[in-house]
């Protein structure tokens, strides 16, 4: 029982860890601006396709770890992750029915919601970053969604 439980969860943890590391790989400035929030995409995929293996606590803990990792306010990305993961969990049955393009558009709106939460907290705590470039990682994420989806779709089914 424990063993199957562990193997069930392993891809989620490994995937999230790799996404966290890819998210911090050095890139040229302009490309870094377009880089999607890979960790959030992975969390969204697992919330959508295998909601039993990962819960909201999973999203929260990885968000908190990312906050510590990137040295911003603790809890900021954790809150964004929880909100997005909650919406994904809540609508996962409906969202699975949608074709990939339709899914990508919903992912885009959720990623922008996430950016809005970050932007809002930045403003409240007095460190505003007012630039339209905040919209870019969301676009990158929506474009990457089919890739992430296809990749994990293969890996996780095999296990």
């Amino acid at each position: 029982m424990t063993d199957s439980y562990a193997t069930h969860r392993l891809p989620a943890y490994v995937g999230a860890l790799i996404a966290l590391l890819i998210g911090a790989m050095p890139l040229p400035h302009w490309l870094g601006l377009l880089r999607p929030d890979f960790l959030l995409l992975v969390i969204m995929w697992f919330a959508l396709m295998s909601p039993r293996s990962t819960g909201l606590l999973f999203a929260f803990s990885w968000g908190l770890l990312l906050d510590a990792f990137s040295g911003i306010l603790l809890g900021q990305q954790a809150l964004g992750f929880v909100v997005v993961a909650y919406l994904m969990h809540h609508f996962h049955l409906r969202m699975r029915m949608y074709p990939l393009l339709h899914q990508s558009l919903i992912i885009l709106s959720l990623l922008w919601l996430y950016q809005f939460i970050l932007f809002w907290i930045d403003g409240v705590t007095g460190h505003p970053v007012n630039t339209w470039m905040r919209l870019l990682p969301g676009l990158g994420g929506a474009l990457c969604w089919p890739l992430v989806s296809g990749f994990f779709g293969r890996i996780v089914q095999r296990h």
Binding site: G23, A24, F69
Partner: peptide, 8 residues
Amino acid sequence: QVDLDALR
């Protein structure tokens, strides 16, 4: 060589 946050 670690990218912390593209906007900051």
